[in-house]
Design a protein around this nucleic acid. Structure first.
Length: 354
DNA sequence: AATTCGTGGAA
DNA sequence: TTTCCAAGAAT
């Protein structure tokens, strides 16, 4: 055991692992679950303040289930991947309604909940209940791809399946809670994507990539693709009370479910914006004052945001098909906005020189 | 099965 | 400045 993959890892973990992250305290299924969702594709340092605030506002699954979804989204504002927040809220209600507020302890049952996939279900089961289950996050993928010198990009199903198989093989019966934490810690602090510290690695003796001095060749790189360019108008419509118009974005797509500024067809010229606003929103506007535009890069495309500010001149009716709200700026910030929009609304607006 | 979901840190 | 990608899941 001591000289096995897991044994070597656990011995290292006892000395060098991370033992005092926020979700390690008062450990229960709820806290483990929330932390695992927040940590999806998100670094530990980014998550910590969000986790603390979230736990203060929603201390248990019942509190989360009973909260308005906008309250949940506002606590997620700036964290990204907002479907996680909506799924988290939905799953909390599922746990309360279907399981009386007690988390199921079976991996398959957890996987049926919104936002919980194979790896997250395994992590919850292992961390919260100490039940043997194999995880496969970015850290484990990197460690195993190097240890076994597995070629190819893990985005390919065939590569992913091999990594899952190795993860299953190495996961021990005993100390699964520590083992699961250990292999993630190793990936995060030793087997890093650039300049791995192989001289400090407990798995170095059996590591194929190290033996070949090819550690940085694994895992295989994602194929490159040019990012498409997209452009949009985002308008700050301000009434005489200093309130601005926000719209809820559709549940799918970028910033799904969040409140944001109304968008207009990028084909409009600046001088056409007042008429476009009147047609789309049903009230008159003054000439558009252009604000410095900026480019925001997402994983698959670049978004050019052209902000414009218009003063509302006519009466402001209530929404039709899309959900709308007139709010003061401080209220907008409390609603939970996408990070670039929050920046836009809190940065002094400068007229562009176009 | 490959793509689409954010954001910020690191190189 | 640009690129990569991190405690993945849903589609």
């Amino acid at each position: 055991m001591a000289d096995s993959f897991a044994g070597q890892l656990l011995a290292w973990y006892d000395q060098h692992g991370r033992h005092d992250l926020p979700w390690h305290h008062d450990r229960n299924a709820y806290r483990v679950w929330v932390s695992e969702i927040m940590l999806q594709q998100t670094q530990v340092a980014t998550v910590i303040p969000y986790f603390e605030a979230f736990m203060k506002r929603f201390p248990d699954v019942a509190a989360l289930a009973a909260a308005p979804v906008d309250d949940v989204l506002s606590h997620w504002s700036g964290l990204g991947y907002y479907a996680r927040a909506r799924n988290l809220h939905k799953a909390a209600q599922q746990v309360v309604a279907e399981y009386g507020g007690e988390f199921p302890q079976q991996q398959e049952t957890l996987e049926a909940l919104s936002g919980i996939g194979r790896s997250t279900a395994a992590a919850i089961v292992a961390q919260a209940f100490g039940i043997r289950a194999a995880i496969l996050d970015g850290n484990v993928k990197r460690v195993l791809a190097r240890y076994h010198a597995i070629p190819g990009w893990p985005g390919q199903t065939a590569v992913l399946n091999q990594l899952w198989q190795h993860s299953e093989e190495h996961t021990p019966e005993d100390r699964v809670r520590d083992y699961t934490q250990a292999i993630m810690d190793l990936g995060a602090t030793v087997c890093t994507r650039s300049r791995p510290a192989c001289e400090r690695c407990p798995l170095q003796p059996g590591c194929t990539a190290y033996a070949r001095q090819e550690t940085t060749s694994y895992p295989g790189a994602k194929p490159k693709k040019a990012k498409p360019e997209k452009t949009t108008w985002m308008v700050i419509l301000e009434d005489h009370q200093g309130r601005i118009l926000l719209e809820r974005r559709p549940p799918s797509g970028i910033w799904g479910g969040l409140w944001s500024l109304p968008e207009l067809d990028p084909a409009y010229g600046p001088e056409e914006l007042p008429d476009a606003c009147e047609r789309q929103f049903g009230f008159g506007c003054s000439d558009a004052e252009l604000i410095s535009g900026f480019r925001h890069t997402f994983s698959h495309y670049h978004l050019h945001i052209q902000p414009a500010r218009l003063a509302v001149t006519g009466p402001t009716g209530v929404a039709e098909e899309t959900e709308q709200r007139w709010v003061h700026r401080d209220e907008a910030l409390a609603l939970g906005l996408p990070a670039p929009i929050r920046t836009l609304l809190t940065t002094p607006e400068q007229t562009a020189l176009l």
